[in-house]
Amino acid sequence: MARSGAASQRAPVRGFDLFGFLSRYGTLIALALLIAFNLAFTRNFATLQTLNVNLTQVCTIVMVAIGMTYVIATGGIDLSVGSLMAISGALAPMIFMGQIVAFPNIYLAVAVAMVVSVLVAGLLGLFNGWLVARFRIQPIVATLVLFIAGRGIAQVLTNGNLQTFRVPEFQWIGLARPFGIPAQVVIMVAMVVAAAWALRKTAFGRRVLAVGGNEKAAELAGIPVTGIKLAVYAISGLCAGLAGLVVIAINSSSDANLVGLNMELDAIAAVAVGGTLLSGGKATIVGTFLGALTIQLVRYTLLANGVPDAAAQVVKAAIIALAVWLQQQNRAA
Protein backbone atom coordinates (compact mmCIF):
# COMPACT_ATOMS: atom_id res chain seq x y z
CA MET A 1 0.00 0.00 0.00
CA ALA A 2 2.82 2.35 0.93
CA ARG A 3 4.47 1.53 -2.35
CA SER A 4 1.27 2.26 -4.24
CA GLY A 5 0.85 5.56 -2.39
CA ALA A 6 4.40 6.63 -3.24
CA ALA A 7 3.84 5.81 -6.87
CA SER A 8 0.65 7.82 -6.94
CA GLN A 9 2.51 10.87 -5.66
CA ARG A 10 5.06 10.83 -8.47
CA ALA A 11 4.83 13.59 -11.03
CA PRO A 12 3.30 12.45 -14.32
CA VAL A 13 5.71 11.89 -17.18
CA ARG A 14 5.26 14.60 -19.80
CA GLY A 15 5.25 13.68 -23.46
CA PHE A 16 7.76 15.06 -25.92
CA ASP A 17 6.83 18.61 -26.90
CA LEU A 18 7.53 18.54 -30.64
CA PHE A 19 6.33 22.07 -31.37
CA GLY A 20 8.26 23.48 -28.42
CA PHE A 21 11.40 21.67 -29.56
CA LEU A 22 11.05 22.91 -33.15
CA SER A 23 10.26 26.43 -31.96
CA ARG A 24 13.42 26.44 -29.83
CA TYR A 25 15.86 24.58 -32.06
CA GLY A 26 14.25 24.61 -35.51
CA THR A 27 16.42 27.45 -36.81
CA LEU A 28 19.63 25.73 -35.71
CA ILE A 29 18.49 22.44 -37.26
CA ALA A 30 17.59 24.17 -40.54
CA LEU A 31 20.92 25.99 -40.59
CA ALA A 32 22.83 22.75 -39.96
CA LEU A 33 20.92 20.94 -42.73
CA LEU A 34 21.58 23.78 -45.18
CA ILE A 35 25.30 23.74 -44.41
CA ALA A 36 25.43 19.94 -44.77
CA PHE A 37 23.57 20.07 -48.10
CA ASN A 38 25.89 22.74 -49.49
CA LEU A 39 29.00 20.93 -48.33
CA ALA A 40 27.77 17.86 -50.20
CA PHE A 41 26.29 19.35 -53.36
CA THR A 42 27.35 23.00 -53.87
CA ARG A 43 30.69 23.60 -55.54
CA ASN A 44 33.17 25.90 -53.79
CA PHE A 45 30.92 26.26 -50.75
CA ALA A 46 33.64 25.48 -48.21
CA THR A 47 35.78 28.49 -49.10
CA LEU A 48 36.56 31.76 -47.36
CA GLN A 49 35.23 33.64 -50.38
CA THR A 50 31.79 32.02 -50.04
CA LEU A 51 31.79 32.67 -46.29
CA ASN A 52 32.65 36.33 -46.87
CA VAL A 53 29.95 36.69 -49.53
CA ASN A 54 27.22 35.29 -47.28
CA LEU A 55 28.34 37.22 -44.21
CA THR A 56 28.61 40.55 -46.01
CA GLN A 57 25.20 40.08 -47.63
CA VAL A 58 23.55 39.24 -44.30
CA CYS A 59 25.18 42.04 -42.28
CA THR A 60 22.76 44.84 -43.08
CA ILE A 61 19.77 42.53 -42.56
CA VAL A 62 21.07 41.60 -39.10
CA MET A 63 21.75 45.25 -38.20
CA VAL A 64 18.20 46.27 -39.07
CA ALA A 65 16.71 43.10 -37.57
CA ILE A 66 18.33 43.85 -34.20
CA GLY A 67 16.29 47.04 -33.89
CA MET A 68 13.24 45.22 -35.27
CA THR A 69 13.62 42.56 -32.57
CA TYR A 70 13.37 45.18 -29.84
CA VAL A 71 10.29 46.71 -31.47
CA ILE A 72 8.55 43.36 -31.97
CA ALA A 73 9.44 42.36 -28.40
CA THR A 74 7.12 45.16 -27.22
CA GLY A 75 4.33 43.93 -29.48
CA GLY A 76 5.03 46.47 -32.22
CA ILE A 77 6.29 46.46 -35.80
CA ASP A 78 8.39 48.91 -37.85
CA LEU A 79 7.70 49.14 -41.56
CA SER A 80 9.79 52.29 -42.01
CA VAL A 81 13.31 50.82 -41.62
CA GLY A 82 14.01 50.59 -45.36
CA SER A 83 13.01 54.21 -45.89
CA LEU A 84 15.14 55.32 -42.93
CA MET A 85 18.09 53.55 -44.53
CA ALA A 86 17.42 55.53 -47.70
CA ILE A 87 17.32 58.84 -45.78
CA SER A 88 20.56 58.09 -43.94
CA GLY A 89 22.18 56.93 -47.17
CA ALA A 90 21.07 60.08 -48.99
CA LEU A 91 22.09 62.52 -46.26
CA ALA A 92 25.61 61.24 -45.54
CA PRO A 93 27.14 61.90 -49.01
CA MET A 94 25.59 65.36 -49.08
CA ILE A 95 27.45 66.15 -45.86
CA PHE A 96 30.88 64.62 -46.50
CA MET A 97 30.98 65.91 -50.10
CA GLY A 98 30.35 69.44 -48.83
CA GLN A 99 26.98 70.02 -50.46
CA ILE A 100 25.50 71.44 -47.24
CA VAL A 101 28.49 73.10 -45.60
CA ALA A 102 32.23 73.09 -46.28
CA PHE A 103 34.51 71.32 -43.77
CA PRO A 104 38.22 72.01 -43.23
CA ASN A 105 39.14 68.35 -43.79
CA ILE A 106 37.56 65.12 -44.98
CA TYR A 107 37.91 63.36 -41.64
CA LEU A 108 35.73 65.90 -39.87
CA ALA A 109 33.27 65.84 -42.76
CA VAL A 110 32.97 62.05 -42.61
CA ALA A 111 32.59 62.02 -38.82
CA VAL A 112 29.82 64.62 -38.95
CA ALA A 113 28.15 62.81 -41.86
CA MET A 114 28.07 59.50 -40.01
CA VAL A 115 26.85 60.91 -36.71
CA VAL A 116 24.23 63.24 -38.17
CA SER A 117 22.84 60.67 -40.63
CA VAL A 118 22.42 57.97 -37.99
CA LEU A 119 20.96 60.43 -35.47
CA VAL A 120 18.44 61.71 -38.01
CA ALA A 121 17.31 58.13 -38.62
CA GLY A 122 17.10 57.64 -34.85
CA LEU A 123 14.99 60.79 -34.45
CA LEU A 124 12.64 59.63 -37.18
CA GLY A 125 12.38 56.30 -35.35
CA LEU A 126 11.55 58.28 -32.23
CA PHE A 127 8.78 59.95 -34.23
CA ASN A 128 7.37 56.49 -34.96
CA GLY A 129 7.48 55.69 -31.26
CA TRP A 130 5.76 58.98 -30.45
CA LEU A 131 2.86 58.11 -32.76
CA VAL A 132 2.57 54.65 -31.22
CA ALA A 133 3.02 55.56 -27.56
CA ARG A 134 1.41 58.99 -27.31
CA PHE A 135 -1.44 58.68 -29.77
CA ARG A 136 -2.04 54.93 -29.44
CA ILE A 137 -1.88 54.50 -33.21
CA GLN A 138 -1.45 50.91 -34.34
CA PRO A 139 2.28 50.37 -35.04
CA ILE A 140 1.66 49.06 -38.55
CA VAL A 141 -0.24 52.26 -39.37
CA ALA A 142 2.11 54.61 -37.53
CA THR A 143 5.24 53.30 -39.24
CA LEU A 144 3.48 53.18 -42.59
CA VAL A 145 3.70 57.00 -42.56
CA LEU A 146 7.49 57.00 -42.88
CA PHE A 147 7.46 53.85 -44.99
CA ILE A 148 5.74 55.95 -47.65
CA ALA A 149 7.04 59.44 -46.89
CA GLY A 150 10.58 58.47 -45.89
CA ARG A 151 11.70 57.33 -49.31
CA GLY A 152 10.10 60.43 -50.77
CA ILE A 153 12.16 62.55 -48.36
CA ALA A 154 15.33 60.76 -49.52
CA GLN A 155 14.43 61.38 -53.15
CA VAL A 156 13.78 65.07 -52.46
CA LEU A 157 17.14 65.40 -50.70
CA THR A 158 18.95 64.04 -53.77
CA ASN A 159 16.58 65.41 -56.42
CA GLY A 160 16.14 61.78 -57.44
CA ASN A 161 19.76 61.62 -58.64
CA LEU A 162 22.31 58.88 -58.06
CA GLN A 163 25.13 60.10 -55.79
CA THR A 164 28.48 58.51 -56.60
CA PHE A 165 31.69 58.93 -54.63
CA ARG A 166 35.13 57.53 -53.90
CA VAL A 167 35.89 58.48 -50.31
CA PRO A 168 38.03 55.83 -48.55
CA GLU A 169 37.79 57.76 -45.26
CA PHE A 170 34.06 56.97 -45.28
CA GLN A 171 33.94 53.69 -47.18
CA TRP A 172 36.03 51.77 -44.65
CA ILE A 173 32.71 50.94 -42.96
CA GLY A 174 31.79 48.77 -45.92
CA LEU A 175 35.07 47.93 -47.66
CA ALA A 176 37.79 47.69 -44.99
CA ARG A 177 39.17 44.25 -44.07
CA PRO A 178 40.83 44.44 -40.63
CA PHE A 179 42.74 41.18 -40.12
CA GLY A 180 41.03 39.88 -43.26
CA ILE A 181 37.53 40.25 -41.75
CA PRO A 182 35.05 42.62 -43.43
CA ALA A 183 34.51 45.71 -41.28
CA GLN A 184 30.72 45.38 -41.46
CA VAL A 185 30.99 41.83 -40.07
CA VAL A 186 32.93 43.17 -37.08
CA ILE A 187 30.27 45.86 -36.57
CA MET A 188 27.47 43.31 -36.91
CA VAL A 189 28.98 40.93 -34.35
CA ALA A 190 29.55 43.79 -31.91
CA MET A 191 25.93 44.88 -32.33
CA VAL A 192 24.61 41.33 -31.81
CA VAL A 193 26.67 40.87 -28.63
CA ALA A 194 25.71 44.26 -27.19
CA ALA A 195 22.01 43.92 -28.06
CA ALA A 196 21.78 40.36 -26.74
CA TRP A 197 23.45 41.38 -23.48
CA ALA A 198 21.17 44.40 -23.06
CA LEU A 199 18.04 42.36 -23.71
CA ARG A 200 18.95 39.53 -21.35
CA LYS A 201 20.96 41.19 -18.61
CA THR A 202 19.71 44.75 -18.10
CA ALA A 203 16.62 46.26 -16.49
CA PHE A 204 15.82 47.91 -19.81
CA GLY A 205 15.71 44.54 -21.58
CA ARG A 206 13.47 43.03 -18.93
CA ARG A 207 11.13 46.00 -19.20
CA VAL A 208 10.97 45.63 -22.99
CA LEU A 209 9.85 42.01 -22.62
CA ALA A 210 7.42 42.95 -19.84
CA VAL A 211 5.73 45.57 -22.03
CA GLY A 212 5.35 43.06 -24.85
CA GLY A 213 4.13 40.32 -22.53
CA ASN A 214 1.38 42.32 -20.83
CA GLU A 215 1.31 46.08 -21.26
CA LYS A 216 -1.37 46.69 -18.64
CA ALA A 217 0.48 44.63 -16.05
CA ALA A 218 3.70 46.46 -16.91
CA GLU A 219 1.99 49.81 -16.29
CA LEU A 220 0.65 48.60 -12.93
CA ALA A 221 4.16 47.44 -12.02
CA GLY A 222 5.48 50.97 -12.54
CA ILE A 223 7.29 50.34 -15.82
CA PRO A 224 7.40 53.51 -18.01
CA VAL A 225 5.64 51.93 -20.98
CA THR A 226 5.66 55.13 -23.04
CA GLY A 227 9.40 55.61 -22.52
CA ILE A 228 10.14 51.99 -23.42
CA LYS A 229 8.19 52.26 -26.67
CA LEU A 230 9.89 55.52 -27.58
CA ALA A 231 13.27 53.91 -26.89
CA VAL A 232 12.77 50.77 -28.98
CA TYR A 233 11.58 52.69 -32.04
CA ALA A 234 14.52 55.07 -31.69
CA ILE A 235 16.86 52.06 -31.48
CA SER A 236 15.27 50.64 -34.63
CA GLY A 237 15.87 53.95 -36.40
CA LEU A 238 19.51 54.10 -35.29
CA CYS A 239 20.14 50.54 -36.50
CA ALA A 240 18.52 51.32 -39.86
CA GLY A 241 20.56 54.51 -40.20
CA LEU A 242 23.83 52.64 -39.63
CA ALA A 243 22.83 49.91 -42.08
CA GLY A 244 22.13 52.58 -44.70
CA LEU A 245 25.69 53.87 -44.36
CA VAL A 246 27.11 50.38 -44.81
CA VAL A 247 25.08 49.81 -47.98
CA ILE A 248 26.18 53.01 -49.71
CA ALA A 249 29.80 52.49 -48.62
CA ILE A 250 29.85 49.07 -50.28
CA ASN A 251 28.23 50.36 -53.48
CA SER A 252 30.26 53.59 -53.67
CA SER A 253 26.98 55.29 -54.43
CA SER A 254 23.64 56.24 -52.94
CA ASP A 255 20.37 55.66 -54.80
CA ALA A 256 17.33 56.83 -52.84
CA ASN A 257 15.15 54.54 -54.94
CA LEU A 258 17.03 51.37 -54.02
CA VAL A 259 18.80 51.73 -50.66
CA GLY A 260 16.90 49.70 -48.08
CA LEU A 261 14.26 48.54 -50.57
CA ASN A 262 12.21 45.70 -49.01
CA MET A 263 14.55 45.63 -46.01
CA GLU A 264 11.61 45.74 -43.61
CA LEU A 265 10.43 42.39 -44.99
CA ASP A 266 13.85 40.75 -44.62
CA ALA A 267 14.22 42.07 -41.07
CA ILE A 268 10.77 40.88 -39.98
CA ALA A 269 11.48 37.50 -41.59
CA ALA A 270 14.76 37.15 -39.69
CA VAL A 271 13.03 37.99 -36.41
CA ALA A 272 10.18 35.53 -37.01
CA VAL A 273 12.39 32.66 -38.18
CA GLY A 274 14.76 33.30 -35.28
CA GLY A 275 12.08 32.53 -32.69
CA THR A 276 10.97 35.95 -31.45
CA LEU A 277 7.21 35.99 -30.83
CA LEU A 278 5.54 38.39 -33.24
CA SER A 279 2.96 39.11 -30.54
CA GLY A 280 5.70 40.33 -28.17
CA GLY A 281 6.93 39.28 -24.75
CA LYS A 282 9.65 36.88 -25.89
CA ALA A 283 12.66 37.78 -28.00
CA THR A 284 16.11 36.51 -28.84
CA ILE A 285 18.82 38.52 -30.59
CA VAL A 286 20.97 35.44 -31.23
CA GLY A 287 17.92 33.77 -32.74
CA THR A 288 17.42 36.78 -35.01
CA PHE A 289 21.04 36.50 -36.14
CA LEU A 290 20.59 32.78 -36.87
CA GLY A 291 17.28 33.48 -38.62
CA ALA A 292 18.94 36.01 -40.91
CA LEU A 293 21.74 33.54 -41.68
CA THR A 294 19.21 30.81 -42.44
CA ILE A 295 17.23 32.99 -44.86
CA GLN A 296 20.43 34.17 -46.57
CA LEU A 297 21.74 30.61 -46.88
CA VAL A 298 18.43 29.39 -48.31
CA ARG A 299 18.65 32.06 -51.00
CA TYR A 300 22.33 31.29 -51.68
CA THR A 301 21.66 27.54 -51.86
CA LEU A 302 18.85 27.92 -54.37
CA LEU A 303 20.74 30.41 -56.57
CA ALA A 304 23.94 28.35 -56.45
CA ASN A 305 22.01 25.31 -57.65
CA GLY A 306 20.29 27.04 -60.55
CA VAL A 307 16.96 27.95 -58.96
CA PRO A 308 15.68 31.39 -60.10
CA ASP A 309 15.57 34.20 -57.55
CA ALA A 310 11.79 34.45 -57.91
CA ALA A 311 11.48 30.88 -56.64
CA ALA A 312 13.87 31.72 -53.80
CA GLN A 313 11.47 34.46 -52.71
CA VAL A 314 8.61 31.97 -52.64
CA VAL A 315 10.65 29.58 -50.50
CA LYS A 316 11.53 32.43 -48.12
CA ALA A 317 7.84 33.27 -47.76
CA ALA A 318 7.08 29.61 -47.01
CA ILE A 319 9.77 29.58 -44.31
CA ILE A 320 8.26 32.64 -42.66
CA ALA A 321 4.78 31.08 -42.75
CA LEU A 322 6.16 27.89 -41.20
CA ALA A 323 7.93 29.84 -38.43
CA VAL A 324 4.74 31.72 -37.55
CA TRP A 325 2.70 28.51 -37.60
CA LEU A 326 5.16 26.81 -35.25
CA GLN A 327 4.91 29.78 -32.88
CA GLN A 328 1.12 29.46 -32.84
CA GLN A 329 1.23 25.71 -32.27
CA ASN A 330 3.74 26.12 -29.45
CA ARG A 331 1.58 28.72 -27.72
CA ALA A 332 -1.54 26.59 -28.14
CA ALA A 333 0.26 23.63 -26.56
Results as ranks from 00 to 15, higher is better:
Ala2Gln: 11
Arg3Val: 09
Arg3His: 12
Gly5Met: 10
Ala7Phe: 09
Ala11Arg: 13
Pro12Phe: 09
Phe21Tyr: 15
Leu22His: 14
Tyr25Met: 10
Leu28Trp: 12
Ile29Leu: 15
Ala30Cys: 15
Ala36Arg: 07
Leu48Tyr: 13
Val64Asp: 00
Met68Val: 09
Ile72Thr: 13
Leu79Val: 14
Leu79Asn: 02
Val81Pro: 00
Met85Ile: 06
Gly89His: 04
Ala90Cys: 12
Ala92Pro: 07
Ile95Phe: 09
Ile106Arg: 13
Ile106Cys: 08
Tyr107Asn: 14
Leu108Asp: 07
Val112Asn: 06
Ala113Asn: 05
Ala133Ser: 08
Ala133Val: 01
Phe135Cys: 00
Pro139His: 03
Leu144Asp: 04
Ala154Phe: 04
Ala154Gln: 07
Val156Tyr: 12
Val156Glu: 11
Thr158Gly: 09
Phe165Glu: 05
Phe170Trp: 10
Leu175Ile: 13
Val189Cys: 02
Met191Ser: 05
Met191Tyr: 03
Phe204His: 04
Gly213Ser: 08
Ala217Leu: 11
Leu220Arg: 14
Leu220Cys: 11
Ala221His: 08
Gly227Cys: 09
Ile228Met: 13
Ala231Ile: 10
Val232Arg: 02
Tyr233Phe: 15
Ser236Leu: 12
Leu245Gln: 04
Ser252Gln: 11
Ser254Pro: 03
Asn257Asp: 13
Gly275Cys: 08
Leu278Ser: 09
Ile285Trp: 07
Gly287His: 02
Phe289Asp: 00
Thr294Ala: 13
Ile295Lys: 04
Gly306Pro: 06
Val307Gly: 09
Ala311Trp: 15
Gln313His: 11
Val314Trp: 12
Ala318Trp: 08
Ile320Gln: 06
Ala321Thr: 05
Leu326Tyr: 13
Gln327Cys: 10
Gln328Cys: 07
